[in-house]
Write a protein that binds this DNA or RNA. Structure first.
Ligand code: SF4
Ligand code: SF4
Lengths: 139, 139
DNA sequence: ATATTAAAGACTTTTGTTATCTCTAATAAG
DNA sequence: CTTATTAGAGATAACAAAAGTCTTTAATAT
């Protein structure tokens, strides 16, 4: 009963990228460094995020990654689905009963969690983090 | 991002046991049969349920498993925890930040799901299933 | 052209789940 | 008390998924 680690790395990367000054790009080596990950491994995660349209990548000199144009709309759920796919937490083996009540309860609880995660935007927590930082600095 | 299959088997077994006439016991072979599982494998799952106090086992002739005395209080979450342990869906790797906002969002959504699952009792869906069965028979 | 950077694919290692087999312990019934 | 019966425990094998590495290819700014 858990997400894969890749989701964890993806969330940290996304927050890092949103935090960055807009339009500035950053390479995989820097992103890997701050999370103490191998660049090649993180690269696969970044590619998934790119394919999902959450970030943009440009190859070549001075290339790298940056957040996609519309960071305001990126939710926690978006990141999770980009990495984990659409797979469900609960998968009934045979699915032999149309209105099955076991499945119903499990799915409903899961859907509610997904609903909540789709309403939580990354930009919101980054803004809160910036406020915290400012408050700290003005001490 | 998913529960293990064992949780699935455990839920089906529990529903089966609650459905059974009270005080009647049933052996692992019957429980394994209806789910098309090997008895030895299901046995481990049953042992976990026993240790969690959700069911009772008696060895020896005419032994087997039956639901514990208080089936009215068994929630979906109880079964999940009996199998999966207390592990969380989201585990931050380093936990380096006390009031971390990433962790907060992930934990809150998870806790809400757990809360919901702790309010859904197995007995409720079994009762509904019995009503459905009766309605079908009176056709 | 060249240096730089992401993407893709093959591959290995590690970890966790699923499953089987064997042996032991408990208990009801004769 | 003995025996048949059933759960429990442990070792271990088989399998699958995740985590991680290495190498090659493609794109691009200078
Ligand atoms: S009983 Fe429900 S949850 Fe179980 S296999 Fe059938 S449809 Fe799926
Ligand atoms: S940033 Fe938050 S979620 Fe990430 S490792 Fe630190 S405390 Fe955990």
């Amino acid at each position: 009963m858990k997400y894969s680690n890749a989701t964890n790395y993806a969330l940290h990367t996304m927050v890092y990228l949103i935090w960055l000054p807009k339009a500035s790009t950053v390479g995989v080596q820097e992103l890997a460094e701050f999370q103490k990950l191998s660049p090649t491994y993180l690269s696969k995660i970044l590619t998934k995020l790119t394919k999902a349209g959450l970030i943009e990548s440009t190859p070549g000199a001075k290339g790298g990654y940056k957040i996609s144009k519309s960071p305001k709309e990126i939710s926690f759920l978006d990141v999770i689905i980009a990495i984990e796919g659409e797979s469900n937490l609960f998968n009934c083996s045979i699915h032999h009963n149309e209105g099955c009540l076991i499945e119903k309860v499990m799915r409903e609880s899961e859907d509610n969690m997904k609903e909540e995660l789709s309403n939580r935007l990354l930009i919101d927590i980054v803004e809160k983090m910036e406020l915290q930082k400012q408050a700290k600095e003005s001490n």
